[in-house]
Simulated scan of single mutants.
Amino acid sequence: MFTRLALLIGAICLIMAIAQAQTEYAALLRVDNGRVQILRANTQEWITLPVGAQAPFGVGDVVRTDFFGRAWITLLDESATVFVLPTSDLTLLTFSATDDQRATVQFTQQGRVIYQVADHDRFADFRISTDHLTITQPADLFAVQVLPTQTSVVIGAGRATITDNTGNTRTAITATDNIGVRGTPVGLSAPIRLTPPTTFAQLDGVLDGCIGVIQARNQQNLNVRVGPSERYDVIGTIPNGQTVPLMGVSPNRERYRVVYKSHFGWILALEVRNRCDNLPVYGYNTLERQYGVL
């Protein structure tokens, strides 16, 4: 009996020591909203965490969010904070600390993640690696979007160093406040100047959009809807005379997909003057979401 009790007490102490070490030296995950799951390193079962839950986040762990899910991760007493946005996942590839408590950190991701580094001195190395580019020096505030064919970075504040997917510093780009960069299999785009608040949609509009001009005939403002038909809700308006990047068209070509605020919306094609051909076609079930990024 005494032996079993001693073993139980020892196991509890070990678990508490591990938890304390993870809290002090690794990262802490917090669930903010929606459905958030974590996959522990070297395991195969996803664990669903309730809203408000906190858990250690270690090397090899993966967190993923659903359509409404949001989570955030803090490192080294909030020296850095990572915000995982809906329908995204984040993996901690590397985390180690030196005797002077400076850390080496490496993340990889899919979807959209915001990074905020409050104290650069606490990190010997802080990087984000994707298939299309690597951030080798983080800005104070920046966001990364990883899609199957491209990775986009937008800088809210500070200075970041971005290399192509080979990590070759000879092709590095230095990006500062309100700059966007896109990486693809063929290399990095030139730095793109954006207007605050900086968003991925704004970067897409500059790189991929075709400019049109609003010319509403019987009204001063043109309605913007969340989808490509009258059955979708109005989410705002665009004034007459304003230029907009056209990003796509509905199957019947009656509506254009445009950059609107932090994401996209849909407007009547007849009310837009343009010379845009070969725009991608989006289905009638397309439903836009408005993201606040930086």
Rank of each mutant, 00 (worst) to 15 (best):
G265T: 02
F126H: 07
G265H: 01
M16C: 14
Q109A: 11
T149M: 13
N278G: 10
L28H: 07
T176E: 14
D204K: 06
S129A: 15
V259T: 05
D177Y: 00
S262M: 10
S79E: 09
F142A: 03
K261Q: 14
H120Q: 14
G227M: 06
A190T: 11
I173H: 09
S129T: 15
G69K: 06
T237Q: 12
D204S: 11
G187N: 09
H132E: 09
F142R: 05
R273W: 08
A11G: 03
V224F: 01
F142V: 02
I15W: 15
D177G: 00
Y291M: 11
L279W: 03
F95A: 10
F68I: 12
I173W: 00
V186D: 13
Q116I: 10
Y115H: 08
G241F: 04
D208C: 02
G183L: 03
T91H: 02
P196A: 10
V105D: 04
F83H: 07
Q54N: 14
T23A: 14
E24F: 06
Q116W: 00
L222E: 03
L39S: 04
T134G: 07
T98S: 14
R30F: 03
V105S: 04
A27E: 03
V146T: 11
V84G: 00
T169P: 04
A55F: 12
R231A: 14
V113H: 02
L246H: 06
I155F: 01
Q202I: 01
N278W: 04
I211S: 13
T104S: 13
A143R: 08
G227F: 02
Q150G: 10
L14F: 12
T161V: 15
I47Y: 06
